[in-house]
């Protein structure tokens, strides 16, 4: 390789490294916090009532990776995972989601739940993807395997 070729190769390498260093770095899209499940209706057979406190984790979907958003809720004696297709946004339409729970053992909810977000409030930025904190309220139909069990969930989350 000639000196000029080496120089061109070196310049290309430096430009590539520079571009990588200055490219915007995707923020981690994980949030943690907690909240409450309430407004239980039609869930008496499973013993849910009042206000059930939960710790929570949220992973936002990403166009580059898994497009689904996952909300995990942790009880003292169990855990629930709601996986939502696409981005989260306030709306009135119900979306089909996937539910998974670990109580005595793991299982996928059948029938699948439907949900809608009644409040999506990003804090510290104008978009969910850039928010430092998130305040979410959602309603779920078909909670925990029960087709007629409807609940509301409110969570306060901060970026992990």
């Amino acid at each position: 390789m000639s000196n000029s070729s080496r120089t061109r190769a070196l310049i290309r390498a430096l430009v590539t490294v520079g571009a990588l260093l200055t490219a915007p770095v995707a923020q981690a899209q994980d949030f943690r916090g907690g909240g409450v499940i309430t407004d239980f209706a039609g869930c008496e057979v499973q013993g849910f009532r009042g206000a059930e406190v939960v710790r929570a984790r949220l992973r936002l979907g990403s166009p580059e990776g898994n497009p689904n958003t996952t909300l995990s809720l942790f009880f003292p004696d169990g855990a629930i995972d709601l996986t939502l297709p696409g981005e989260i946004a306030r709306g009135t339409a119900w979306s089909r989601a996937w539910g998974t729970a670990i109580w005595f053992g793991p299982g996928n909810w059948d029938p699948r739940p439907r949900l809608r977000f009644r409040q999506v409030t990003p804090v510290g930025a104008s978009t969910v993807a850039e928010a430092t904190d998130l305040l979410l309220r959602l309603q779920v139909r078909g909670f925990n395997w029960l087709a007629g069990c409807n609940v509301s969930i409110a969570v306060a989350l901060t970026r992990a």
Partner: peptide
């Protein structure tokens, strides 16, 4: 009843970045 988080700890020896 409910839950949430604490974060933004400043001058708090022994406390990490966030707590559920």
């Amino acid at each position: 009843r409910g839950g949430g988080f604490l974060t933004g700890f400043s001058g708090c020896s022994g406390w990490g970045s966030r707590e559920s």
